[in-house]
């Protein structure tokens, strides 16, 4: 190692030997690749993203004014119910949003029913709730039958296709009502919840598929890790070569 002018001074950016210069250049290249690959891609994702609503959000927005003022027709009530079920089917939903949507959904279902159906549905909801609170095991046969019965009763009222996954959550989200109208708080909570859960940041990078993945997901979860191992491997190989070339022993 040569001595620099100010005596035994080491600085990454001011290398004084051939080895140090090679190392600096290599490190700068590799760190640049590393930084651009990680942060550059996420930045691109951020810049290109557009808040994209799920189809059911449009249904909700078209019909909500009628639903909340109790002036919705059957089709509007059904569309609202589909949108509500789309949110209720999500795993992580805040309890206050869930409660308001449960109530809204149940009101819509009862409004869609004629008076005889309405009484039957209300009874079935109550019975199912009582059963649900008394069982210790969800594989209980009576519980399962009551759930299937409630689903089979309400699903046709909403006109849900049998293969629609929203049927899974339907019987579990109907609740006994103490009042038949949405409160101001409920309305505010529903208006807050729907765009929150049904709008997503999407772009060409998220909508393109690669090896079954959404592209951006593959890039971040799989490719970046391959790149990291590759950078490390390259660094070691290059360092060994430089050391061998300059006859530097470890």
């Amino acid at each position: 190692m040569e001595e620099s002018n100010n005596g035994f001074h080491i600085s990454f950016f001011k290398p004084t030997t051939k080895q140090a210069k090679s190392n600096r250049n290599m490190v700068l290249w590799l760190v640049s690749i590393w930084a651009v690959a990680i942060f550059g891609f996420q930045l691109a994702l951020y810049v290109l993203q557009k808040p994209t609503p799920e189809a059911t959000l449009a249904l909700f927005e078209e019909n909500w004014d009628h639903v909340k003022t109790n002036s919705a027709n059957n089709e509007q009530l059904k569309d609202f119910s589909y949108a509500a079920l789309s949110v209720l089917g999500k795993i992580f939903i805040r309890p206050e949003h869930k409660a308001a949507l449960d109530k809204g959904l149940t009101i819509a279902v009862l409004q869609l029913s004629d008076s005889t159906q309405s009484a039957i549905v209300s009874d079935k909801i109550r019975n199912f709730e009582n059963l649900a609170s008394s069982i210790t095991d969800i594989t209980d046969e009576n519980y399962k039958l009551a759930k299937a019965d409630l689903c089979e009763t309400v699903s046709p009222i909403l006109g849900l296709d049998k293969s629609d996954p929203r049927n899974i959550v339907l019987p579990l989200e109907l609740v006994s009502l103490t009042d038949a109208a949405l409160s101001k708080e409920d309305i505010a909570l529903i208006e807050e919840a729907m765009p929150l859960y049904l709008t997503h940041n999407q772009s060409i990078l998220t909508d393109t598929k690669f090896l079954g993945f959404p592209f951006h997901y593959f890039y971040t979860a799989v490719f970046l890790l391959i790149l990291f191992v590759g950078i490390c491997w390259l660094y070691c190989v290059r360092t060994d070569r430089i050391n061998a070339k300059l006859n530097i022993a470890d």
Binding site: Y46, E54, S86, K90, P165, H200, Q202, Y217
Partner: peptide, 16 residues
């Protein structure tokens, strides 16, 4: 089965 849940894969989803 599952209801569509794009929030799982989409970057910095508002619901998270």
């Amino acid at each position: 089965a599952i209801v569509p849940a794009p929030e799982y894969a989409m970057p910095w989803d508002p619901s998270t």
